[in-house]
């Protein structure tokens, strides 16, 4: 068989173990469950994978109210009731009121698609259990019409979780699991280079120092992640902040320019201010 392997692209940097994980999941046709700090690119991965395989991406965004059934199909009974009162002919064929969900679409797609089940932990705890059979056998039954929907080819399933709920064991057993670590300084540099190829080296290294300083501060409630770093750099570039200016605030202490992009919590802002104040006082005395 031909093996398409997924590696870093011009726009997306993927760590080696993650690329192995993706390739294993694609080859062995198992769903891949991704966890990791918010902002480490879990969702991006599915998009990039679809792009690199030239496959369609079906994204199923899970919310606290999402039901497993909605991924299979929905029977719109209310509009059928309305149609029956209006005397429409459509009402005699129940299949007019069956709306295929994302799984159905994925199963019947012409080309092997990438199905992204995003933030599965947001849903009710029973949600993953309800999908066990469908993800395992890649088929399901439509009770209203008696149809059996069987996958033409097994879609590549990427599932992301932010760890808000624990997932049931039976479900986990059917998935491959990968935890995306927060990237180290070198990988982050690569990632930034991909997004902003012409950023000055000096600005980048100073910015990364500031960024890792903030991440290492104890008691920071919401640690800035990769996506916040990239937003912040974008602002730094747009505002034409020079490396010297950045270095200056870093040494003198105080909030970094455009801190709003990095710190999303007012208590964190206060904390950084306080630490800077203490550093200044210590240096002054």
């Amino acid at each position: 068989m031909t093996r398409q392997s997924f590696t870093s692209t011009a726009t997306y940097i993927v760590a080696e173990d993650l690329s192995l994980a993706v390739n294993a999941a694609v080859t062995l046709e198992k769903p891949l469950l991704l966890k990791g700090e918010p902002g480490t690119g879990k969702t991006r991965l599915a998009e990039e994978l679809a792009a690199s395989l030239n496959a369609p991406l079906l994204r199923w965004q899970i919310k606290s109210t999402t039901k497993a059934q909605q991924g299979l199909y929905e029977y719109d009974a209310v509009s059928r009731l309305r149609d029956s009162q209006l005397g429409s002919d459509k009402v005699h064929d129940i299949s007019n009121y069956i709306k295929p969900g994302k799984l159905w679409q994925a199963f019947t797609a012409e080309q092997r698609p990438v199905l992204l089940i995003d933030e599965i932990d947001k849903a009710d705890i029973e949600f993953p259990n309800d999908l066990l059979h469908e993800l395992d056998q890649m088929e399901f039954h439509v009770y209203e019409t008696g149809e059996q929907i069987v996958a033409q080819q097994r879609p590549i399933v990427i599932i992301t979780s932010n760890n808000e709920k624990e997932l049931p064991d039976a479900f986990l057993r059917r998935c491959f699991f990968h935890y995306i670590k927060f990237p180290d300084a070198d990988t982050l540099r690569d990632i930034v280079q991909v997004h902003y190829p012409d950023i000055q080296k000096q600005l980048l290294s100073t910015a990364l120092e500031v960024f890792f300083d903030v991440r290492q501060m104890p008691n920071v409630k919401k640690k800035p992640s990769t996506s916040e770093l990239i937003d912040w750099l974008k602002l730094l570039l747009a505002e034409k902040i020079t490396p010297q200016q950045l270095q200056e605030t870093k040494q003198k202490g105080g909030l970094m320019p455009l801190f709003g992009a990095l710190l999303k919590n007012e208590q964190d802002v206060q904390l950084v201010e306080k630490l800077a104040f203490m550093a200044r006082r210590r240096d002054g005395s």
């Binding site: 994980a21 294993a24 966890k35 064991d169 986990l172 057993r173 491959f176 699991f177 990968h178 935890y179």
Partner: peptide, 8 residues
């Protein structure tokens, strides 16, 4: 690790 471990 990918296959055997299901939780970080």
């Amino acid at each position: 690790r990918l296959i055997m471990v299901k939780d970080e």
